[in-house]
Nucleic acid binder design. Structure first.
Length: 243
DNA sequence: GCGACAG
DNA sequence: ATCTTGTCGC
């Protein structure tokens, strides 16, 4: 199966237009739902890798069984870069490929875990919020770096947290997922509370600092990029622990 | 005004 | 994100 990854209609071509789109879509963000409880249903990781030299982008979506963390299904999408990296506008660079990969999945994604931020964002509309509004799915953001936000180092034990603040407001949380190891930075996306987002992040880190969803998606999109041949391709497979 | 800044 | 070898440790 091979198709071209589409750039969505109306995808902004300038930074000013992209910021305007964020302001518009922010009104549709749902923040009063708790979200699915950890350990139930599906949890899907999404991630993107780049080859600037070949102007290629590859996205992966990996669906895990939330109870066992076994792989249920996975999909990849390869296409052309749709937007440059601009701090605060990451979603416009990553989402076209991510949306294509999600649509290629043979099963419902359930909760989606993004590699980046949700509400912790200059305009409170990061990658995870954006993906949630476009798909209607519950989303959370788990980032590896504190971006431009301030926080106090959480206590050493796994599970310790500290507020991630922007102008004194708690926009996310620094969460220690492994004893004594650098924390990850969690924020709510769409239809999920910050408390629940952190609970999911903990449930997804039984062995490593980063969530299993992120680790699986990262490995898969890198592989898809290496194996990328033609102009654009989307592929999906179901199985994993389900066979 | 000039950087720094998720990936 | 990506450029990049070896190396220490379980």
């Amino acid at each position: 199966m091979t198709t071209t990854v589409p750039i969505p209609d109306g995808w902004p071509g300038t930074e000013a237009r992209a910021r305007a789109v964020q302001e518009e879509l922010r009104a549709r963000l749902v923040r009063d739902e708790t979200g699915p409880p950890p350990g139930t249903g599906h949890v899907t990781g999404v991630d993107v890798a780049y080859d600037d030299g070949r102007d290629l982008v590859a996205a992966a979506a990996v669906v895990l069984d939330a109870a066992t963390l076994g792989v249920v299904a996975e999909a990849t999408a390869v296409g052309r870069v749709a937007f440059p990296y601009v701090p605060g506008l990451l979603a416009f660079r990553e989402l076209p490929a991510v949306l294509a990969a999600l649509e290629a999945l043979p099963v419902p994604p359930g909760l989606v875990v993004c590699d980046g931020y949700g509400l912790a964002h200059p305009r409170r509309f990061g990658l995870a919020c954006h993906l949630g509004v476009l798909t209607g799915l519950p989303t959370v953001g788990v980032a590896k770096n504190p971006f431009a936000f301030t926080y106090d180092d959480p206590a050493a034990p796994r599970g310790s947290t500290a507020p991630l603040r922007a102008d004194g407001e708690e926009v996310g949380r620094a969460l220690r997922t492994r004893d004594g190891v650098k924390p990850v930075f969690v924020s709510a996306g769409h239809r999920v509370t910050l408390d629940n987002a952190c609970a999911h992040a903990l449930a997804l880190t039984p062995a490593y600092r980063l969530p299993e969803t992120t680790r699986r998606a990262d490995a898969l999109c890198r592989r898809a990029l290496r194996e990328a041949g033609g102009a654009g391709a989307v592929s999906a497979a179901a199985g994993g622990s389900a066979r």
